[in-house]
Design a protein around this nucleic acid. Sequence first.
DNA 1: CCGAATCCAATCGGATACTG
DNA 2: CAGTATCCGATTGGATTCGG
Lengths: 141, 141
Amino acid sequence: MCVTNTDGRMTLADDAPSTEYEDTCKRAGEEHGRAIRTVLDRIGDKWSLLVIGALQHGTLRFTELQRHVPGVSQRMLTLTVRQLERDGLVTRTVHAEVPPRVEYRLTAVGETLIEPSLALAQWAIEHYPAIERAREAFDGS
Amino acid sequence: MCVTNTDGRMTLADDAPSTEYEDTCKRAGEEHGRAIRTVLDRIGDKWSLLVIGALQHGTLRFTELQRHVPGVSQRMLTLTVRQLERDGLVTRTVHAEVPPRVEYRLTAVGETLIEPSLALAQWAIEHYPAIERAREAFDGS
DNA sequence: CCGAATCCAATCGGATACTG
DNA sequence: CAGTATCCGATTGGATTCGG
């Protein structure tokens, strides 16, 4: 897994043959692979990206968050925000009141994730029709 | 799930209160939600993005592809390229030879996925250390 | 060389019920 | 309100074996 190649181009996966330089790149790239894998495991799950998106305009409480992410169960929302909190992408603030009030908010790091996620979302919207057509053609033949 | 808001800003999830306009946006946005979900289900899996990355510089045969994506099993590589083929992101060309030769290549649509994926990969590499630190801090406390 | 088929463990995620 | 706990079906993905 190399991200910066010998020619300076960016790559997502490793092309490396077995030259010494490439091997160095490969070893360094293994770290990159873990980074990409880790991030993909987070944003690739069913709800994280939607939660990030729901929080992009400000603070939300648990129930509000649940309304903004249609279809998420209480359990999965809890697990998802815990993961995001653990990864330092979301802060969780508990106010000592009755009834309890818990507020979720993106951290600075969490906010930087919005831009690339949005790029992906735009790609999805733009190419979804083509994908649907491709599937029908593939399944039909 | 709204992507373009009333104020023109982009969003990943739906903020919509129940005005008529927002409801229209919401209904239209449900389509966007399916698009994003669909694409996330594809690139969010364990291997698709790595395969796309491996193919970004040209054509590869099955075994080459497997070498370029370290850790992938034969089974998963087969399933992954089939999905990508079905979605019209990759072409699969079988040459009638012995031994058989099968070549995989990105389609035009597949190539457009590289840019946003790379943006995400760069984010991953840049913020992975912060995520690791956040996790240690979270787990330690 | 390029797969398909089978088996199986682990994880994911929904439903439901209960709590401070 | 904001969770936690438990159960359970569905999905994921690795290992292995067989075939054209």
